[in-house]
């Protein structure tokens, strides 16, 4: 995945989920995404994952999706209460 494609993906996730989105490189060419959106409040974890992966699958081709190692999805209030342990 090129830097441009990664940025386009992050922009689309921001737009679609009104989210704060960050990408962290976990190994060469592989990224972990963090998505914080008010739309995830009260939504079970797997449903959040499904929504985000649906967007990823739309934006990237099959090989490129393997460059996303993992997605962390939180609502803003969860970020506030989570202790940094």
């Amino acid at each position: 995945m090129t830097d441009v494609q990664l940025q386009e993906l992050l922009d689309e996730l921001k737009r679609r989920f009104h989210a704060q989105v960050e990408a962290e490189q976990v190994s060469p060419g592989r990224f972990r995404l963090g998505v914080v959106s008010p739309q995830f409040a009260g939504v079970p974890g797997l449903r959040r994952q499904d929504r985000i992966w649906e967007a990823i699958d739309e934006m990237l081709d099959r090989e490129q999706t393997l460059d996303i190692s993992l997605v962390l999805a939180y609502s803003p209030d969860e970020i506030e209460v989570a202790p940094n342990v």
Binding site: L46, W53, D57, L66, L72, A73
Partner: peptide
């Protein structure tokens, strides 16, 4: 890649499911 391929054969999003569980 292996999980993804098996998911395609089964017509189910195995990789997304696995990554989703590992992420949540």
């Amino acid at each position: 890649a292996g999980v993804r391929k098996q998911g395609e054969r089964a017509g189910l999003p195995y990789w997304e499911w696995l990554s989703g569980i590992c992420g949540s």
